[in-house]
Computed example of a mutant assay.
Amino acid sequence: MINGLTVDLEDWYHICGVEGYSDPQNWDTYENRIIRNTDKVLALLRTYKVRATFFVLGYIAFKEPDLIRTIKSEGHEIATHGFYHKRIFEMTEREFEEDVHKSISVISSNINEDVLGFRAPEWSIRKETPWMLKILRKLGILYDSSMVPLTRMGSRDFPLYPCKFTTDYGVIWEFPLTTTRLFWEHLPFTGGLPLRIFPYFYIVSKIQRINREGYPVIVYIHPWEFDVEQPHIDLPVSRRFMHYFNIKATCKKVEGLLQHFQFSTVKDVLGIRT
């Protein structure tokens, strides 16, 4: 079974809903650590000869076009993470369309290819934003990877595994965040804080079970999770725990997964051909 490996290409200060840091007008004043941290990720992928999908912020593509071209030159897929890292439920339909269109334009001009995939910042698709899939398909996006089948973070009605949705502009794939059942909820475990907090053997056993059932999983990482020396932002306690706890474990756990499982781009896993 080939699973999806994804990188949300954002810098240490790209945090939604935090006063000051979520304001793009301030971003140029912060230290740029995206190149050094992305280099760590790329080196790891080269070592294990793995290709991944990079969900790139349009802002980063605009500021660091050479970085995006380097990622592309190493065989990875370039998809979009929006332009300004804004959560979908904080935007109108028009604002969302403008943000994604802007990111697609900048990214595609750097790689001379169509952008086929999208991931919402903070997995921010909700039951109240069903229009997003229609807009994505209108903009030429062929797959989304934003849904989480979890109460409050997404919806328990969202799919557990890759599937297709029909929109006014055609069919679009959805590759939701991989979860495992715990009582009445489905909890994430393949990226971010859950990957850093759950025991490695537990993560491996759950991935193996899902693969045996015939489904691929999706793993996601951030370059800043490979940077234990990054500046720390004064976040609320719950957000601070989610953002910083045990990031020193990220590299070791990701390297273990690359040794134990097969990975490729989301486009390859879904079998999308253009």
Results as ranks from 00 to 15, higher is better:
23 D>K: 08
213 E>K: 15
136 L>Y: 07
233 I>P: 04
1 M>A: 08
18 V>N: 00
38 T>A: 05
115 V>F: 09
263 F>G: 01
150 L>Q: 14
206 K>L: 12
14 H>D: 10
219 V>Y: 00
125 I>E: 10
27 W>R: 03
32 N>C: 12
95 E>F: 05
98 E>V: 11
224 W>R: 02
44 L>I: 09
250 T>V: 01
208 Q>N: 08
45 L>N: 06
178 T>I: 07
164 K>Q: 15
77 E>L: 03
228 V>R: 06
255 E>G: 01
216 P>R: 01
208 Q>S: 09
51 R>T: 14
236 P>N: 12
145 S>H: 03
34 I>E: 11
240 R>C: 05
240 R>P: 00
64 E>P: 07
19 E>C: 00
241 F>L: 15
61 A>H: 02
263 F>P: 04
218 I>L: 07
265 T>I: 07
198 F>E: 02
149 P>D: 09
145 S>K: 02
179 T>I: 08
217 V>M: 05
149 P>E: 10
122 E>H: 10
51 R>H: 15
71 I>R: 06
30 Y>C: 14
113 E>C: 12
1 M>I: 00
232 H>V: 14
253 K>I: 07
27 W>V: 07
214 G>P: 07
141 I>M: 01
35 I>T: 12
54 F>W: 09
187 L>T: 02
257 L>V: 02
163 C>L: 12
263 F>R: 02
100 V>G: 09
160 L>M: 11
30 Y>H: 14
232 H>S: 05
136 L>F: 08
225 E>L: 04
120 A>C: 05
142 L>V: 15
162 P>F: 12
164 K>S: 12
182 L>T: 08
174 E>I: 07
125 I>A: 09
252 K>I: 07
265 T>N: 03
211 N>W: 06
10 E>M: 01
17 G>R: 14
188 P>C: 03
272 I>E: 00
143 Y>I: 04
125 I>P: 09
231 P>R: 04
219 V>G: 03
77 E>G: 03
21 Y>T: 06
85 H>N: 13
221 I>G: 01
41 V>I: 15
51 R>C: 09
23 D>P: 07
201 F>E: 13
10 E>W: 01
159 P>E: 11
113 E>F: 09
195 L>D: 08
151 T>V: 12
22 S>W: 10
2 I>W: 07
20 G>P: 11
233 I>T: 06
156 R>A: 08
179 T>V: 13
